[in-house]
Design a protein around this nucleic acid. Structure first.
Lengths: 151, 151
DNA sequence: TAAATTCCTATTAAATTGATAGGATTACTT
DNA sequence: AAGTAATCCTATCAATTTAATAGGAATTTA
């Protein structure tokens, strides 16, 4: 159930950019502060650019900045874009469903679907702005939060 | 955020055994009904045996059966035993915490912790018996629930 | 024009997963 | 007691994914 370092690194970079709104940050600086190698960051940022999350400025004094506002960057989407479906199994994926020969009468699929839904619930309701503002534990106060399952 | 086929296959085998309580099932039969190769199943069942989930009977008419009752087999534990921590990142794992150089002031860790908690909430409260009885959607009506992080 | 920096493609290394092979051991059956 | 069927066990291999590396082309600033 891991998120790969690819996703982690990309989010670190997005967070850093979000923490310096309006500023163009060079890869070297991003590398220093995220502890990710310059070359690997290059690849990630290129991908994030193609996906529309960041823009770049080439040449001397060039670098990267966020393309959308942090409240418009959805963490679930970012992870999906970089790592594929949030679902633990293809058979339970909404965005990239994959059929399975055992699916009829499968006693596991309901569980995978539930896991998918809970993961998606958390990640799709979190934006970069939430992370920047440390707004993750907004569930504090209540022991349990009841969530309506999308029907 | 994937569960590997290793975990899926092992759970298929456990479900099959649970569906035939008291019966000794040979690997060939398990292979037919789970669509997993005999040799790969062998490895998985061996591991499940060492972990205490199944017992085996050797020789002719040999095979496997559950060691514990289905209500004593916790799905979260099974997945952890086979695939490692449920947490999406080592820094948020309870059972196998791994420190991270960026951890101080990390704006991601709260999210990973929340994801870990929700996944663990679902999987640790599910037993093999729940799967056998199709009791996964027992939260139906209230739909489902995400737990707040234990403080 | 020179220096700095992104852009882009290709390659390599490492880790994990899934599958395969083959023989040793055990137990049932006749 | 012998033969056969099955688990047991270790070792290896293939495929995939992930992470890291390399090197040069293109662009912008100064």
């Amino acid at each position: 159930m891991k998120v790969s370092s690819k996703g982690e690194y990309a989010l670190r970079a997005l967070l850093l950019l979000g923490n310096h709104p309006g500023k163009v940050l060079g890869i070297q600086e991003i590398s220093d502060k995220t502890m990710v190698s310059v070359h690997y960051l290059e690849q990630l940022l290129l991908q994030l650019k193609k996906l529309g999350y960041v823009t770049s400025k080439r040449g001397a004094k060039g670098g990267y900045m966020l393309h959308k506002g942090p409240e418009g960057i959805n963490i679930g989407e970012v992870i999906r874009d970089l790592e594929g479906p949030l679902s633990p199994m293809g058979c339970a994926s909404i965005t990239q469903y994959e059929p399975c020969p055992m699916e009829a009468g499968c006693q596991l699929k309901p569980l995978w679907s539930l896991v998918r839904d809970t993961i998606a619930f958390v990640l799709e309701r979190t934006t970069l702005e939430d992370l920047l503002q440390n707004r993750i534990n907004k569930l504090e106060g209540e022991d349990f939060v009841v969530i309506k399952r999308p029907s």
